[in-house]
């Protein structure tokens, strides 16, 4: 089997720099949550404060992917799990976190709108926005609709959002966030 027809592995490899600590693409199931979660707790534990923030951000973004990604894998137990990418890298002063996944074009406007609101607010306003949104009932998936707000609060930096159109139905949605060391 010639895998190179499916994946240009050199391109994939070259797209990461030497600061990359983790790169993953696939279904974000509980085993992956645990594996990456344990990595974060372990390797980053020299800096407990940052490690806790990286972990919190990872959980919220990973859960967003597993719930809302437009790309699903059916696992052995017949559960459908969202597929996406997780990349963690380390720079001199920050840990950098990036996730990406396909989303339906129908959902893009509301995601961008929410992200822009988040980035336009200062910390106190963000907390108020979180309290407002948290009062709404649980979403169908059991989420609280405040994952992205919490990510911005935890990171204390704006969300770096990018949307790349893929076709008539789907776009690729990525979020990059920084966590100060």
């Amino acid at each position: 089997m010639n895998y190179s027809k499916q994946v240009n592995i050199l391109d994939y490899h070259s797209s990461f720099d030497q600061d990359t600590r983790i790169s993953y693409k696939g279904p974000i199931d509980e085993k992956i949550l645990q594996a990456i979660g344990t990595y974060i707790e372990g390797v980053l534990n020299k800096n407990q404060k940052a490690s806790k923030k990286v972990f919190k951000i990872f959980i919220e973004l990973a859960q967003n992917i597993s719930y809302y990604s437009a790309e699903k894998n059916t696992m052995k137990n017949n559960k459908e799990i969202g597929v996406g990418m997780v990349i963690i890298s380390e720079a001199e002063d920050t840990y950098n976190f990036m996730t990406g996944n396909l989303v339906k074009n129908d959902d893009i406007v509301s995601i961008i709108e929410k992200s822009e609101i988040i980035n336009s607010l200062d910390r106190e306003e963000l907390r108020e926005y979180k309290r407002e949104q948290r009062k709404l009932p649980h979403s169908q998936k059991g989420g609280a609709n405040i994952g992205l707000i919490q990510v911005a609060l935890t990171s204390s930096h704006p969300l770096d959002i990018e949307v790349i159109p893929v076709d008539d139905d789907l776009s690729f949605f990525s979020i990059a966030v920084k966590i100060d060391k």
Binding site: K52, F55, K56, I59, E60, Q63, R134, K135, H138, G142, G143, A144, I146, G147, I149, Q150
Partner: peptide, 12 residues
Amino acid sequence: TYFNTSTSRSIL
């Protein structure tokens, strides 16, 4: 010592 946002809704 830690709870995710989904939990924060249930605590409320």
